[in-house]
């Protein structure tokens, strides 16, 4: 049984390290704030804002030029001026993330990049829902087998031809 617990201890440690790295990456790269938070905090650094493009608010300033529109979310709406390259994701009623800076003088969010909605919530849920039960299922099964071997040795049911590995 000793090796069994050491092995599973190792698995647990590796899983914990991967989990911590994942959370760090998530906070560094993919969190987004709502327009409501943007208006409230007025951050000066580059931020990611998640919202929905208001229907019919898109105004193009010439072909390939900047695009102005309204982005709303959590009950607040901000004006956005998008300076990056044309993106087909920029369309009415689309939920997306705009990456850029808040301009406190003009009260316009100046975005240089769009990014699709970070569906990491769904991805994380899918992986957690599969991998965690899988670990528990396997752990229980292996533990049961190890215990059964001990039990059977004690009851002297089974005399293997070769000595069983010490579990």
């Amino acid at each position: 049984m000793k090796w069994f617990y050491i092995r599973w201890g190792g698995v647990l440690i590796i899983a914990a390290i991967i989990g911590v790295l994942g959370i760090q990456r998530y906070y560094r790269d993919v969190t987004a704030i709502s327009p409501d938070r943007l208006l409230h905090d007025q951050p000066t650094q580059t931020v990611r804002v998640l919202g929905r493009v208001e229907a019919g608010s898109i105004v193009k300033e010439g072909e390939g030029g900047p695009v102005a529109f309204q982005l709303s979310g959590q009950g607040a709406t901000v004006s956005v001026r998008y300076l990056g390259e044309a993106s087909e994701n920029l369309r009415d009623l689309k939920t997306l993330v705009m990456v850029g800076k808040w301009n406190p003088t003009t009260h316009i969010f100046e975005a240089e990049k769009t990014s699709l909605m970070p569906n990491y919530g769904f991805v994380t849920a899918a992986y957690l829902i599969s991998l965690l039960p899988m670990g528990i299922f396997l752990f229980n099964m292996e533990r049961k087998v190890a215990l059964l071997y001990i039990l059977i040795k004690e009851e002297k049911v089974y005399q293997p031809e070769e000595p069983l590995e010490n579990r």
Binding site: A55, G56, L93
Partner: peptide
Amino acid sequence: KVVPNTLRL
């Protein structure tokens, strides 16, 4: 085509 400020398209 979207109808501005509605959820109709």
